[in-house]
């Protein structure tokens, strides 16, 4: 190394170091970017396409749209959805499949949206709720259909003979499931 290089090296080095120091000093006085969570809970709005967790929307009459076809269960790569249905006999003698329990394991879900794409009824969707932490893993398994809820009938269909569900049916939610032997969807999940 020639002497010239030695001294120009020092000069270049010191200059570059001072540039760096200048940058950090400037940032020292700029506005900070820290998000003050949870203080900002009110303003903190997730984007509407954000996939927080799967929900089954119910209308004000406690009705959902799920017909229990099990397509979502088949579409799920992780087997995080379990649809339990039963067969009920309608007053006109026809048999009809009805949703008993829609279990969703948030702990297994990888938010791929395949269930939502598969659903022919638009019965499930992702909500933007992101505070999903729980203390116990079993709490991650959620039942998405509300107790006592039933599938929304098409307006043209005759009035169903289910007066009990109209009332505050929350008192005995498990009753129908206990009476009829729960008929798990016979179709296997596509892959586990």
């Amino acid at each position: 190394m020639s002497n010239n290089n030695y001294f120009s090296g020092i000069f270049f080095g010191v200059k570059s170091l001072l540039t760096g120091l200048g940058v950090t000093m400037k940032e020292f006085f700029t506005r900070k970017i820290t998000e003050q969570y949870p203080e900002n809970r009110k303003e903190l709005k997730m984007f509407d396409r954000f996939r927080g967790r799967l929900v089954m929307p119910h209308n004000d009459k406690n009705e959902h749209k799920c017909i229990g076809c099990g397509l979502c269960q088949m579409a799920c790569p992780n087997g995080s959805i379990k649809v339990t249905t039963e067969s009920v006999e309608l007053p006109d003698g026809k048999k009809k499949r009805q949703l008993v329990k829609y279990e969703y394991d948030l702990g297994c879900c990888m938010f791929c949206e395949l269930c939502i794409t598969a659903c022919p009824q638009g019965a499930i969707e992702f909500c933007t709720d992101f505070e999903n932490a729980v203390f116990d893993r079993t709490k991650l398994v959620q039942q998405l259909n509300l107790p006592g809820s039933h599938v929304a009938e098409k307006p043209v269909a005759p009035k169903p003979a289910a007066p009990a569900a109209e009332k505050p049916a929350t008192e005995k939610p498990a009753a129908p499931a206990a009476e009829a032997p729960a008929n798990t969807n016979p179709e296997k999940p596509a892959a586990v």
Binding site: T24, E27, F28, T30, K32, I33, T34, Q36
Partner: peptide, 11 residues
């Protein structure tokens, strides 16, 4: 260090 890094640090 937090202020240099555009953060607030412990708060």
């Amino acid at each position: 260090c937090a202020f240099f890094q555009c953060r607030l640090g412990p708060n």
